[in-house]
Design a protein around this nucleic acid. Sequence first.
DNA 1: ACAAGTGTACTTGTATACAAGTATTATAAA
DNA 2: TTTATAATACTTGTATACAAGTACACTTGT
Lengths: 243, 243
Amino acid sequence: MHMPNGLLYPEKWLSKASTGDRVACELRMRIISGMIKRGTVLSENKLAADFAVSRSPIREALRTLSAENIIRLERMGAVVVGLTEKEIEEIYDVRLLIESFVFERLVKMDTDALVMELSKILEMMKVAVKYRDADEFSYQDVLFHETIIRSIGHSYVLMIWNNLKPVMESFILLSMRVRFQEKYEDFARIINNHELYVEAIKTKDRNLMLKSLHLNFDDVQGGVEDLWRSQQMLAKGVGQQNE
Amino acid sequence: MHMPNGLLYPEKWLSKASTGDRVACELRMRIISGMIKRGTVLSENKLAADFAVSRSPIREALRTLSAENIIRLERMGAVVVGLTEKEIEEIYDVRLLIESFVFERLVKMDTDALVMELSKILEMMKVAVKYRDADEFSYQDVLFHETIIRSIGHSYVLMIWNNLKPVMESFILLSMRVRFQEKYEDFARIINNHELYVEAIKTKDRNLMLKSLHLNFDDVQGGVEDLWRSQQMLAKGVGQQNE
DNA sequence: ACAAGTGTACTTGTATACAAGTATTATAAA
DNA sequence: TTTATAATACTTGTATACAAGTACACTTGT
């Protein structure tokens, strides 16, 4: 696939991905960033031409995005739904729901290995902050929560996560890129929230866990404004870590 | 698509479905019923030959089933995961999770229209019981819960439901077919549980709701045994409503 | 001017063809 | 007998071809 200039999705995350996955990731970023606006109707043929690939991977990508609720497959074309403030809140509703569920399981388990793993990820996050690497930070942030969720070995909760993850990832990626440039001081707080989370797991403190989760989620308030700024940054050609 | 003899999925539910959807539904039923055993490796070519269709709809179906966690797409072939007792419990964990969430929203809403709708569905269920129509009963049962979930207008909770629904539907379908034949007396209790549920929504009684939900879910204990019996019934050629 | 009908340029769904890669099996050598 | 290698058959991923259906614009008749 010969991608046009200016990819939004980090290329190195696609090392062994299929063309269909690449298209899905890139399209997802363009939709969530607002580069492709809500209401737009996408045609398989046009997309295939744009990405210079055949319709097969495009179809695959569209089905993926449809399952993620950011497009709607209709008779004639796929209409873009995207993310409004409402949808972002809904995503965090679901995250709160499943992470609370996971915590209830965790308090009945031995969490030493998990805490160790999370500490490692936290260190990585700190390094990413230090070197102002938004993409790496986003990756570790998502990995942090995924690690917690995976630890209870619940395949259907994991399924929910897997459905949410790509959209989350894109959203966080765009949001973090803006904040590294405009609100760098936020990261001390974000790191701190995650440390609280680890502490809650270590001490199995339900209240602390809820507190850190809420802090974490409050931190994404104004998420849509971040996306909007991300869109403006793109227009100015700033903030893309890959070319 | 020229289906081979003995379809498990009700044909009339597929009136305007694509070939890919048909294959997905039928394959899902065969997997959940145990007709295709856990660990089996499915090949696109073999499936295409079996169903007498091309690989395109087969690929589509496999991706669908993979998102539902009942198969796992690997390098060479799709391996069947299926449903064990553990997975069924996990599905009900998730249902409990989201239906509880929905209820919390419902108690803050006007539920008159919803209660009316649910009453209608309940009447339909009673008729289905009376005429021993397992497929129709299953349909209304699934619709009952879907109606409740849709009522709060939460797109990401609905997304979870949509991912769960096909597997639920298949499971309920198979389970009900067995019970209509072997445990017909169960249905008085099932109907009663649903009436309790409606009552809980009408009176916004959180405890009653949880009680009826648990009753409802306790009712599916031994789910895997039902599937096993369903499998035995199939071997004897009984219990298929369509030919 | 306006309504009805027709043609055309799109749309998706399915089938088929081709390419690249992997496991397995058979063969040959030690 | 065992091991290494090569041929083969089967796998998925992608591209392309074709069919059926839909929307829209244009033409034609009134």
